[in-house]
């Protein structure tokens, strides 16, 4: 393992140093707002101690990022493969256009988590959020899976308003008994069936293991499942001139 001190380093310099580090296991200390960590790297596990800046793991391609702290906006933007594990909260637009890999957030996420998430064949991205999220969760979601566990928010609905606006693919699971408010018309909400629960069991257990949470308590709770009722939401909108 190699340790890099990020103190007083500009992101360009720091990221080059991480990418060039002659070890696949890199720990970066004293991180304070440096952007795009992991973006230019490949085949590495990068442990970040401190607070990384925006665009953490943008276009990430097979790198594992572990953040011992909070992450900011645009984390995992257009991420292609790999894993981002955040031992804290994450800012807005986490996992924008993400198409594979996973993002695990121990606590809360900001607005627009999982926006434009997509899937294709065996590439199915996953975002799991332990706490609550802001509004517009899964906006324009076209594929993949978002799971919100609402740990510590058992008395309220752990997602903000307008969840799944423009959603036309993928699924969202929310551990709660309170229905999300103002869901758009094209989103269908059902109580997760046993079969549904089986489909997320592996992911949720893995999440719990990572953050030392008792999986059986979580998995035995009530989950809502959100899916779009059309993969062609705009077909009726247009008439040829």
């Amino acid at each position: 393992m190699i340790t890099i001190d990020a103190k007083n380093k500009y992101y360009k310099e720091l990221n080059r140093e991480i990418a060039d580090a002659p070890d696949s296991d890199v720990t970066v200390e004293n991180v304070c707002g440096q952007r795009y960590i992991g973006t230019n790297a490949s085949d590495k596990t990068i442990t970040v101690i401190g607070t990384p800046g925006n665009g953490l793991g943008a276009y990430l391609n097979g790198v594992n990022l572990v953040i011992k702290g909070n992450a900011q906006d645009a984390t995992g933007d257009t991420m292609n493969a790999g894993e981002i594990v955040i031992h804290g909260c994450v800012g807005d637009a986490c996992g924008y256009g993400m198409r594979d890999g996973k993002i695990l957030v121990k606590n809360d996420a900001g607005y627009r988590a999982g926006i434009h998430m997509k899937e294709y064949n065996e590439k199915i991205p996953n975002i799991i959020i332990g706490g609550k999220t802001g509004s517009f969760l899964g906006e324009y979601q076209a594929g993949g899976r978002i799971i919100v566990l609402g740990i510590g928010y058992e008395d309220v609905c752990p997602v903000g308003g307008f969840c799944g606006t423009g959603m036309h693919g993928g699924e969202i699971f929310i551990r709660t008994k309170k229905r999300p408010v103002n869901l758009p018309a094209q989103v269908e909400i059902t109580t997760a069936s046993d079969e549904d629960m089986d489909s997320i069991k592996g992911s949720v257990s893995e999440f719990c293991e990572r953050f030392d949470i008792k999986a059986s308590d979580i998995l035995s709770s009530h989950f809502y499942k959100l899916t779009p009722n059309s993969s062609n939401p705009y077909t009726e909108l247009y008439v040829n001139q």
Binding site: A93, Y96, R112, Y120, K123, F136, E139, G166, H168
Partner: peptide, 17 residues
């Protein structure tokens, strides 16, 4: 495009970031 066959491909006006 890396999306399933037959689904609408939607690029909204703004980049939401």
């Amino acid at each position: 495009r890396m999306i399933p066959k037959g689904t609408d491909a939607i690029s909204p006006a703004p980049h939401h970031d």
